[in-house]
């Protein structure tokens, strides 16, 4: 087993402690036993306790209470096609692209922004430039038209506004 479950358990346990501390500060309703802080405290306690159990049970893997026969031995997907190396470049671009989308949404506009993000994304996954560009521009324009005209969603035109899009 990797370190991931231990880390996740530890982080969730700490989160639970934080939730309890934050929930204690919530106001109480006079005359009532259970206020808005009651459930968050319970949830925090749950995260605290079970996060710790999860982190500590890494060495001795916890088994399902009800074990279904055959479960867990799902067919090995990698058997016939050799998996490639992780696409760190595309991954980094995906996150950067989404953050950029959030910040440039109004100024750059939907079509321009999405075309660039998707084209680069596909190129990083080994698609040829013209092919990637064509697919992303075409799909972006179709989606833009669909959402603006039929579903009335105000997607921003941004820099391409002068083109009357």
């Amino acid at each position: 087993m990797s370190k991931a479950p231990f880390l996740a358990g530890a982080i969730l346990s700490l989160l639970g402690a934080g939730v309890i501390a934050e929930a204690m500060r919530l106001p109480t309703i006079p005359g009532q036993t259970y206020g808005p802080g009651f459930f968050p405290v319970l949830i925090g306690a749950g995260l605290l306790v079970f996060g710790a159990i999860y982190a500590l049970s890494v060495r001795r893997p916890m088994q399902a209470v009800i074990l279904l026969e055959g479960e867990g031995t799902a067919p090995d997907e990698a058997e016939e096609t050799v998996p490639e190396r992780p696409f760190y470049g595309a991954l980094a671009w995906l996150v950067t692209g989404l953050v950029a989308t959030i910040f440039l949404w109004e100024t750059a506009g939907f079509v321009l922004l999405m075309s660039v993000v998707l084209t680069v994304f596909m190129i990083l996954l080994g698609v040829r430039f013209w092919h990637a560009g064509l697919v992303s521009i075409a799909s972006t324009i179709i989606v833009y038209a669909l959402f603006i005209k039929i579903l009335m969603v105000p997607l921003p035109a941004g820099l391409l506004a002068p083109l009357g899009l």
């Binding site: 639970g16 309703i29 808005p36 925090g44 749950g46 079970f50 999860y54 916890m62 399902a64 867990g72």
Partner: peptide, 26 residues
Amino acid sequence: STGFVAGLLSLFIGLLIATVGMDVIS
């Protein structure tokens, strides 16, 4: 399938997310 502790943790995360926002009672 990955054990009830993992399932419970997941559940508590969901419940915590549900508490975000204005409390319905007060």
